[in-house]
Every structure is written in structure tokens, then in C-alpha cells.
Amino acid sequence: MQKEFAFFPGCVLTQAAIEAKMSIEAIAPVLGITLKEIKGWSCCGASQAQDVDPLATLVANARNLALAEQMKLPVLTTCSTCLLMLRRAKAQLDNGQKEKINTYLAKGNMNYQGTSEVTSLLWLLAQNAEELKSKVKKPLSKLKVAVFYGCHSIRPSKDLGFESSTNPTSFETVVRALGAEVVPFTKRLDCCGFHAVYPAEKSVMKMTSGIVNSAAESKADCVVTPCPLCQMQLDIYQDDAQETTKSKARLPVIHLAQLVGLALGIDAKKLGLDYNVIDASKIA
């Protein structure tokens, strides 16, 4: 297993999903992974800024990747949207845009070469599921988990391509390695709606509520997701969403790193479980 990464937290880990940062930083040393945060990383554009200026977004991500290259390390992120934006930028750069964009990067004395790959926490763990299993101290054998992939960890395949987007298995593999039970969950590949929560609020609340209800119907104890944006959407907006659709179900929504941390026997406090909006304490 690659042990050292240029860590790209993404904006949301510094603010609203602070517990995602806490938990990934808590599990890394236990798994023997060193995360070196990229100094001076910028917002990836969040699949939003490109609607204003696609070129500016590409430049910003070329710079992010170049910063990682200076560290001579592959990039790891846990936010699926950051993952998609960085990987798409890399694909664009490696397929013809590199030269042009490098002339802009030169204004800040930087250069993109294409030497750093971009991966996610989910993929890394799935690739090393056996090793992960061997490090589990507290198997989550009583926990029923609804795994929620989130769009940008699987779609579009042309940019992500780690696994089948219609029949992915990485998340199940990881959760099972932790000893938890994966429940059948019809909306596991759906969209939480996060990126349109402002312009299409009504629809998004319906989507969010549908996911929570679907997980509840499968008798899950919690929803777990690799993406802090999905987590935010399903957790922070859950009350609103459930009120909108007049649904009773409430379910804790936790980050992948939090779930891993629990299985590794890390203290719930260190995993930031008390920061989750829907009470997640009973999972610990």
C-alpha cells in the first residue's frame, strides 16, 4: 500500500465537515498512512466555479496538482467532488491542455508535469481491504450500514473509472472488512442533491428525504458515505428534508473515515462524532 500522500482536504473539511478531517487524520496513523497536507491548496471549483469560468477552474486545479508534484507524492482526497474536479483537470491537462495551461502557471513560477495520480480514501481502502481487516480492533458486527456512494465517487466513469458505475463494489468491500453488515439499499447510487440545494431546493429536499427513508426502510442503523458533501446534505439538511416530505425517519449519517475509526477502536470524540448533526453517538 502506498503510505504517503499529498493530502487535498477540500474546503468543506476545513469548515462544515471538520469532523471528516478529524477522522481521516485520526485513522491515518493507525493504518500507517502519512497525509501531508498540500500547502496553499485552493478550492477545486466544486463543480460550480466552472459555470462561471471553466478555464480559471482548470488553472486552479493545475496549480493544485503541481503543488502535489512538488511534494513528489500522489494526491489523496476524501471529498468526491474534489476527486472528480482534480481527476478531470488531470485528464484535460494530460490530453492536450498541459502546454497552454503551463504558460499561465509560469506566472507564479509553477509547472504541471502529470506525475501525481489522484486517488480517494475509499479507493485506497478498497484496494487494501485485507490489510484494513487485519487492523480492525472492534469489528462492527452489530452494525447495519446503508452505503451511499455519492455521484462523484463513481460518475462519470470517463473521469473516475475505478470501478463499474452501475454495479460498484468498493464501498461494500470496505464496510464488510470492518465487520459491519451492508443492508440492501435501493438508493445507494442516487444523488443527494447537494450541488443544487440553493437553486432547486424543493427537488433536493425530496431527494435527500428519499435517500434517508430508503435507508431507514432497509433497517439500517446509519448511512455512511465517503463524500463529505453528501454527508453534509444528508445530515445537516435531514430535518428540513424530512419535514418537507412529512417523514418521521431520522438516521445518523457518518463519514467513511468515522466508520473506519470506530472499527479501529478510536475514540468517538477523536472522530468528531459529536459534530454530526443527527445524533450519531449510539453507533459508537
Binding site: C151, R155, C191, A196
Partner: peptide, 11 residues
């Protein structure tokens, strides 16, 4: 502006 960025269409 109501696209939710799920990328199913692209995919």
C-alpha cells in the same frame, strides 16, 4: 440552473 450535477447523463 436546476441540474444537480449527478452526472448520470454524462455517464
Amino acid at each position: 440552473w436546476n441540474c444537480v450535477h449527478c452526472h448520470e447523463c454524462t455517464n
